[in-house]
Structure formats: C-alpha cells, structure tokens
Amino acid sequence: MVGHVKAVLLVGLLVLGGCGREAGTTSDGGTSAGNPTDLVVIAGTVVDDAGRPVEGALVQPRSLDEPPLAVPELAVMSGPDGRYEWRLAAGRYEFTALKGERTGVPAEVVAAPGTVDAAREVPLRLP
C-alpha cells in the first residue's frame, strides 16, 4: 500500500511539473511566458530630477501579464552609477524605483520573445 501511495505521488508531481504556459501572444498584444530560455535582459539607470545617478534605489518589476509571470527576486538595488539589471522571462512588466520615501513614476516595458540576451534599456526617474 505504501509503495502504491508513493507511485501515485510521484506521478502527480511529474504531471504538475509538466504543466506550464506556452509561449504566445495575449489578446491585448502582450506576450506570455514561454520557454525559460527566452530570457531578456532589462537594464537601465535610476536618476534623480537633475539627471544624476541614484545609488541604492530599489528597482521592482511587476508582471502585467495574466496570469502574472513569476519574478525571480523582489527587487534589485541600483549601483553607484545608478545602473540596475534584470534577466526576466519574456512578457509585459512595469518597473518602479524606490528609495526612502521617494517613489518614481512606473515605466512599462515589453520583454519580447526572440530578443534573447538583447539588453533593453529602461531608464527610471526618482524624484
């Protein structure tokens, strides 16, 4: 009986592991998650209103796809030169920079399939 339960659990895990979303285009023209190798590098610089780089700003992406795509980390920090970089699955995202009580204007980006490893520049302004 124990062997039978283990076999059923193993089959269930294999079935769940095989479930996933296919690559494609959503009804509103956005993209959906596909092959995990379809990663796009999204990079940019966080700057203040005077155009100076902002070090230590939290940069957070939010998936705009339905259902939302998983984001591997909650946030990354901008470096001394204000630069940040994310490697994300193809899809639609909104990026926001935060530091202390300041929150920047969100920037929307479409990380399109077929642009694997092509860096997309998304500048963020933090007042």
Rank of each mutant, 00 (worst) to 15 (best):
M1D: 14
V2T: 13
G3D: 11
K6V: 09
K6N: 11
K6M: 14
L9V: 15
L13C: 12
L13N: 12
L13Q: 11
L14V: 10
L16D: 02
C19T: 00
C19A: 15
E22H: 07
E22L: 15
A23L: 02
A23T: 03
D28K: 10
D28F: 10
D28V: 06
G29T: 14
T31P: 00
S32I: 08
S32N: 06
S32Y: 03
N35M: 10
P36G: 09
D38C: 06
D38F: 05
D38W: 03
G44N: 02
V46G: 04
V46Y: 03
D48L: 14
D48S: 00
D49H: 09
A50R: 07
A50G: 11
R52V: 10
R52K: 14
R52L: 07
P53T: 05
E55V: 13
E55Q: 13
V59D: 02
P61A: 15
P61C: 06
P61T: 04
R62Q: 06
R62V: 01
S63G: 11
S63D: 05
L64Q: 12
L64I: 13
L64E: 08
D65E: 08
E66P: 02
P67I: 10
P67Q: 07
P68K: 14
A70P: 07
A70W: 09
V71S: 01
P72W: 01
P72C: 05
V76M: 10
V76S: 03
M77P: 02
G79D: 12
G79K: 01
P80E: 10
D81K: 15
G82W: 04
G82Q: 04
G82S: 06
W86V: 00
W86M: 02
R87H: 05
R87Y: 04
A90N: 10
G91M: 02
A97E: 05
A97M: 14
A97Q: 14
L98A: 10
K99E: 00
K99S: 06
G100P: 01
G100F: 06
R102L: 08
G104F: 00
V105C: 01
V105Q: 10
E108P: 07
V109I: 09
V110L: 14
A111R: 02
A111P: 00
A112I: 04
A112F: 04
P113R: 12
P113N: 08
G114W: 03
G114P: 15
G114M: 01
G114S: 07
T115W: 11
T115R: 14
V116P: 10
A119H: 05
R120G: 04
E121I: 12
E121N: 13
P123H: 07
L124V: 07
